[in-house]
Amino acid sequence: MDGTSKSAGSPSRVVFALGEKAIFKAGDRVRVSTRSPIGHYRVPTYLRGKSGSVEKVIEPAAIDNEEESYGRNAGSKRHYYRVAFRMSEIWPDYAGSERDGLHIEIFETWLERAER
């Protein structure tokens, strides 16, 4: 993504702010980072390193709630995504249907592109 777009009939080239455009789109495969921040985090431990797929980009971009927790009420914004996981991906011995799933919102900086 080059951060620019050209709409039909418009001569001007629109430049988007850093982080203004979502990096992932619905359907993308993503993996949750395995990092372990201390102090405050909003990605539960049980999801670290798990792979899922982006169900929806949550608009508009918003402040990282981990930063917000230290009183930063403004700053660089990025997107949250609604990400879907199979329960069997999260819990190897999950008792239930193979199609059971978990849906959660995750901030962009926590996600990496996954192969499958």
Partner: peptide, 11 residues
């Protein structure tokens, strides 16, 4: 008032 925002409360 953003004196204590919701996320600060959680933290």
């Amino acid at each position: 008032h953003k004196i204590i925002n919701t996320e600060e409360k959680r933290r």
